[in-house]
C-alpha cells in the first residue's frame, strides 16, 4: 500500500490558506485518492495563526497528521514556518514564502523579533525551498494570489497530473478571479 502523504499549510489569517487546502483536497479527490482535511476555525481573521492539514492516500483514517510525520510543510509566512518545525518528518520538505507579517507582540514592542530567523530555518529544514511569493503575486498584479503560487509550487511535488489541478482550480475559484489564479498557479508550478 502506498504511504499516506501528509501536507500541513501554515500561515496567518487572511492569506488564503483555507482555499489552498480546499484546492489540494479537491485535486487529490479528482485523482481518485482518499483525502481528509482538518482545520480549526478560530479567530483567524483577527490576525492569529492558521493551520490546515491535508492527508492524501489510498485510505485515510485520521484527519490529523501524527506529530513528526508531515511530509510537506507549506508555510505562507517566514516566522510561522518555525512554529511547526517539530511536526515535520525527518526527511520532509519545507516550502516557505519569505514574506514577513509582523505579529502585534513584536510591532508593539512586547516581544523581541527573532534575529537569527534565517539560521534557524537552515537548521530546521535541510530540504527547503524559499520563495518570495508576495513579490511574485505583486508582479502578477494581485497580492491575493500568494496562496495559488504556493499551491502551484507544492503541486510539482505531488503525484497528480497538471490537468487535474487545473480542473480543481476551475471548480473552486470564482470565475471572475480564475484567470489570475491560474496564472499564479502556473507561476508557482514553474519554479525550479
Amino acid at each position: 500500500m502506498k504511504k499516506t502523504v501528509n501536507i500541513a499549510l501554515v500561515g496567518v489569517g487572511g492569506q488564503g490558506i483555507l482555499l489552498a487546502s480546499e484546492v489540494i483536497s479537491r485535486a487529490a479527490m479528482l485523482a481518485g485518492s482518499d483525502v481528509k482535511k482538518s482545520e480549526v476555525h478560530g479567530m483567524a481573521q483577527r490576525g492569529g495563526s492558521v493551520v490546515s492539514q491535508v492527508r492524501i492516500g489510498e485510505k485515510v483514517y485520521s484527519p490529523l497528521i501524527p506529530e513528526g510525520e508531515t511530509d510537506f510543510l507549506v508555510s505562507f509566512e517566514l516566522l510561522e514556518s518555525l512554529r511547526y518545525a517539530d511536526t515535520l518528518a525527518p526527511n520532509g520538505t519545507a516550502l516557505i514564502n519569505t514574506q514577513v507579517i509582523t505579529p502585534v507582540t513584536v510591532s508593539s514592542g512586547q516581544q523581541p523579533w527573532v534575529e537569527d530567523i534565517e539560521a534557524r530555518i537552515e537548521k530546521a529544514y535541510p530540504n527547503r525551498k524559499l520563495m518570495d511569493a508576495l513579490k511574485m503575486a505583486q508582479d502578477l498584479g494581485n497580492v491575493r494570489t500568494v496562496n495559488m503560487i504556493m499551491t502551484g509550487a507544492l503541486s510539482k511535488m505531488l503525484d497528480i497530473e497538471e490537468s487535474v489541478w487545473l480542473q480543481a482550480l476551475s471548480e473552486l475559484v470564482p470565475a471572475k478571479h480564475l484567470e489570475v489564479n491560474l496564472k499564479a498557479f502556473a507561476l508557482g508550478r514553474g519554479l525550479e
Binding site: 483577527r46 516566522l79 518555525l82 517539530d86 502585534v104 523581541p112 534557524r120
Partner: peptide, 17 residues
C-alpha cells in the same frame, strides 16, 4: 519527537481586536 530546537522564544501571534 525529536525537537529541532528552533522554536524557543518565537514571538506569539495572538488574535487581537
Amino acid at each position: 519527537l525529536p525537537s529541532k530546537g528552533v522554536g524557543e522564544g518565537l514571538p506569539a501571534r495572538p488574535p487581537v481586536l
